[in-house]
Design a protein around this nucleic acid. Sequence first.
DNA 1: CACGTTAGGTGACAATGTCACTGAAGAAGT
DNA 2: ACTTCTTCAGTGACATTGTCACCTAACGTG
Lengths: 220, 220
Amino acid sequence: MTLDWTERFQGTAALPRAVRNRLVDVARIIHMDEGAQVFGPANVPDSLFFLYEGRIRVSQSSESGREITLYRVDAGESCVLTTACMLAEEAYNAEGVAESEITAVVLPKPAFDRLVAEEEAFRKFVFAAYSKRLIDLLRVVDDVAFGHMDVRLAERLLALTGDLKEISATHQQLASELGTAREVVSRVLSDFQKREMIAQSRGRIALIDKNALKILAGSK
Amino acid sequence: MTLDWTERFQGTAALPRAVRNRLVDVARIIHMDEGAQVFGPANVPDSLFFLYEGRIRVSQSSESGREITLYRVDAGESCVLTTACMLAEEAYNAEGVAESEITAVVLPKPAFDRLVAEEEAFRKFVFAAYSKRLIDLLRVVDDVAFGHMDVRLAERLLALTGDLKEISATHQQLASELGTAREVVSRVLSDFQKREMIAQSRGRIALIDKNALKILAGSK
DNA sequence: CACGTTAGGTGACAATGTCACTGAAGAAGT
DNA sequence: ACTTCTTCAGTGACATTGTCACCTAACGTG
C-alpha cells in the first residue's frame, strides 16, 4: 500500500504532496481485526497513530465495570490520546478498540518529532487533531453532567443509525455508549416503544419515528 | 516586568535561555483582576495564553444554569483550551475566570506559530500542556460518570483546603465545582457534619477530621 | 434596628443507579 | 425436534441524586 494515503487526512489544510511523500517514507502500515485493542492501559503505544481505514471507539471504564464512549476515531483522523498517554505519567483508563477491521499508519516517535518540526502542514494537522479531541471531551462532560437520559439516548440512536432504519445493538452496548446501566437503557427504550418511536426485537432497534426522536434529541 | 518569567513554566523540559529570550521579545504582559473572564464563548481569544501569576478556573455551564469546574490553570501553565477554541468552529461553552489577580503572558498567534516551528523546547512544552488537559478532562469524565457524590465532595474539600484547617466556600460554590445542585451539596455536607468530619458556619467549612475524609475520598 | 440580600434547610417528588431475580430468544449439541 | 446453555431483556424494590417550592437564618446596609 504505497498509495497517497495522506489524502485521506483532514487537517486544517490538506497535507501538501511533499509532506505526504515524507510521511510515506517513514511510516509503517498496520492492520488489526475488529475487536482488537488498539491501545489501552496495558498497551501504551510508543508511536503515533493515523487511521486510514475503519473506525476506533475510544472509551473509558470504571472500576465497577461501567463504561462510556468518549469519541470515535474515523478514517482520516489521528488518535492524539495515545500521544497524551505517552507523555502523561498519570494513570488513565481509556482504551481504543477497533470497531471494524482497521488499517492505520504508524509513525515512530522520532519521525513524528521530525515531521512536526519541519512541516508546518503536518503541525497544523496535529494541533487540529488535539483541539478536536478536547472539544469532543467538553461535549462528553456536558452530556454526562447536565444531559438527560432520554435525550442522550435519542441522540445516540439517531447517530448510530445514520441513514438506515434500524441498528443492531444490545441494551448493554447502548448503556456503554452513554456511561449508564443496562436497566436504565431498558427503561427509557420501553418508554420510547410505548410512545411508538421505536420497535424492539432481541439485539435490534428499529427507528419508526425518527422525527419524534429528533425533536426529543433537541429538547431540554 | 522583563524578568525571566519563562523559568516559571513547567514543560517536559525547562525552556532554555535562548527560547526564553525569544519569548520575552514577542510577548505582551497583561494583568487582570479577580473575577475577570479570561476567555469564554463571547470572548474568543486570538492569542496564546501563559499564566505567570495567579490561578484561572476553567468551567463549563449548562443552559439550565448549573456549572462544573473542568480544571484550573496554575502559574506556570498555559491554557490550551483557548487554542482549541480558536481552531474549533463548533460552539462550546467553557469559560475561564480569574480566581485571583493574574499576570499572564500573551503571545500573538503568528509569534506562537514561529516559536513552535523553530524551538523544540517550546514545542514540547505546548504538547505537554495539551496532553495534561486531555488527561484532566478524562478525570472529569470519570468522576462525573462514575463517581459518587460523597466521595467527590470529600476530595474537593481536601483539595481546596490544602494544608489549612478550613475554607470559605458556599454550598453553591462547591456545587459549581462538582457540577451538581446546591441542595445536594447541603445534604452531603450535613451528613458529614453528623458524622463529625466537618463543622459548618455560614460560608465556611472546617475540616475537623481530615483523616476520615481521606478514607472516604479513597473509597468506592 | 429595620430591611433587603444571600446562604442554607426541608419536604415532596422525579430521574437515575443498583441489586436480585425472572423469563425469553437464540445457539449449540444430541 | 428436543434439550440445554448462554445471552438478552424485563421487573420490582430500594438508594442516590436532581428538581422544585418554599422557608428560615445570618449578614450587610442605611
